[in-house]
């Protein structure tokens, strides 16, 4: 696997202050017409996926995060936030994932 970290095409976009996202929490982040969900797990890993459920285009950041699984607030579709994999009906299409890093107390998402 090619590390996104070293991909010179990746642009690191500022999301929020690191402490604005609590452990076991998710926030919505909009950038240039796209919406993302950015997560901090209970063991302090950060990650990001597409922001809308692949089933009916609802913001996943309004959903419930339990461990590595985000549940869509509308129909309970579930996804693994680390891999984007759809984990339960009615969601059957995976989410895209994006690299996230923390630098200088800021959360950054890698796009492009």
């Amino acid at each position: 696997m090619i590390s996104k970290e070293n991909d010179t095409m990746t642009q690191w976009i500022d999301v929020c202050a690191a402490d604005a996202l609590e452990p076991d929490d998710v926030i919505r982040f909009d950038h240039e017409g796209q919406t993302f969900a950015v997560y901090r797990t209970s063991d302090d890993a950060y990650c990001a996926t597409d922001g809308l459920c692949t089933h009916e285009q609802v913001h996943l950041a309004d959903g419930y995060l339990e461990g590595r699984i985000i549940e869509c607030p509308k129909h309970n579709g579930r996804f693994d936030i680390m891999t984007g994999a759809a984990k339960g009906a009615p969601a059957c299409i995976d989410l895209a994932t994006y690299p996230v890093k923390v630098a200088d107390e800021r959360v950054l998402i890698g796009l492009g």
Partner: peptide, 11 residues
């Protein structure tokens, strides 16, 4: 709206 109620129903 699902976004306003879904999470708390899950919990």
């Amino acid at each position: 709206p699902a976004g306003a109620i879904g999470r708390d129903i899950r919990i």
